[in-house]
Design a protein around this nucleic acid. Structure first.
Lengths: 205, 205
DNA sequence: AAAAGGTTTGACCATTTGGTCAGGATCACG
DNA sequence: CGTGATCCTGACCAAATGGTCAAACCTTTT
């Protein structure tokens, strides 16, 4: 099965089904913890059929990761240098929190990968991700210099936003164990808390 | 090998060596990703010898997790209801950050476990951990009611502290990929950032 | 020093797992 | 409808992996 080739109807459907099943299984068990049988089962296909569409387990994993990286960075890319600084950052925080709520599997897939040293996406981190982060850090630093927000280390600000928002997806089991919420009810509280926190820290006294 | 039995000199030494090796390997690869051969190699023992001291791979993992839980919670336990509120919380943040710097393997071991749904420690989370967190949340809520700190949702405050500090251990690969620091140099910046952030958000305007 | 108890190992086993392959079923299209 | 391309599968394989065991090897104790 070649990539980048024009896809037939069946190919499009099955590759989609496989990637969705793989996201389910990889995000729940990590790369090594996931088996082709599990993925095949979740996809409703036979194991050899999986390997008709992807040459190996690792190829599925890589396809998932690189396909998701863009989606995952979209909110940061949307941070507008021309917008109102505090509102831009708050919007980014809340957007990221919504992603953690609506796409927890994607978040956990990355979390699994990075906790284990990011062996398969280190180059993506050191390349495009670093570039984007550095660019947006410049913007935030500019806002600080201009006195539009209280001065902060922009890189660590971004890390803190990632950490606090993704926490609700990646450590869902812990959050639920402690809060015992009904469904996703706690996300509203989290949004209120994070909005308050970042407003307080960015608003000049 | 029975637990809780009086240990010989050799037992004490080897069980320690095994647990250290297991921490190294489990934290880097997750439960499923770690193999007994790897652990045995890291410990400088043969695989059957491992299984002389622990009945199974899972037993090693459980021994590690429950042995570490206490250490991991110590900083929160130290939060003193009688101390100065803002200073107590800042000290907790900085203490947790130091643990992330000095014991990243422990942090990643938990991260791996929780990202994958905490199958082996869910009861510890819903039991002792929840109890401790609820207790300290009460303390923080009291500080808020008394006007000693700006009002915050205490549970989410604690989550944010865990998230922001453990981020530097759990997502080390990402942080290093973006910051490219010399050694642990970035931890000083992180400490400064987090101290500023939590002071601003807790200090009444 | 010899018995008793604790420690270590090589050889081995059953199962799981990623992956292959030859051939059969199905589909697209002239 | 027929034929070539695409899609799918059962049977199979080699390697990896968790775990067992009898026998050999150390320590400790008497």
């Amino acid at each position: 099965m070649n990539d980048a080739s024009p896809q037939t109807r069946i190919q499009k459907r099955n590759m989609g089904v496989i990637l969705d099943a793989a996201l389910e299984v990889f995000s729940a068990h990590g790369f090594r913890g996931a088996t082709l049988d599990q993925i095949a089962g979740a996809a409703g296909l036979s194991k050899p059929n999986l390997l008709y569409y992807f040459p190996s387990k690792e190829a599925i994993h890589i396809a998932l990761l690189s396909g998701l990286m863009d989606t995952w960075l979209a909110p940061l890319r949307r941070l507008d240098p021309e917008g109102d600084p505090v509102e831009e950052i708050v919007a980014y925080v809340l957007g990221k929190l919504e992603m953690a709520r609506d796409y927890p599997r994607e978040s956990r897939l990355f979390a699994n990968e990075i906790v284990q040293g990011a062996p398969r996406i280190l180059d993506q981190i050191e390349g495009p991700l670093k570039a984007l982060v550095d660019e947006k850090a410049e913007v935030i630093a500019g806002w600080g210099d201009a006195g539009h927000i209280a001065p902060v280390d922009p890189h660590h600000l971004i890390f803190s936003i990632w950490a606090t928002t993704q926490h609700y997806a990646d450590f869902d089991a812990q959050v639920r164990g402690i809060l015992r919420p009904e469904g996703d009810a706690h996300f509203a509280d989290a949004a209120k808390f994070l909005e308050t926190m970042y407003r307080r820290m960015l608003t000049r006294p």
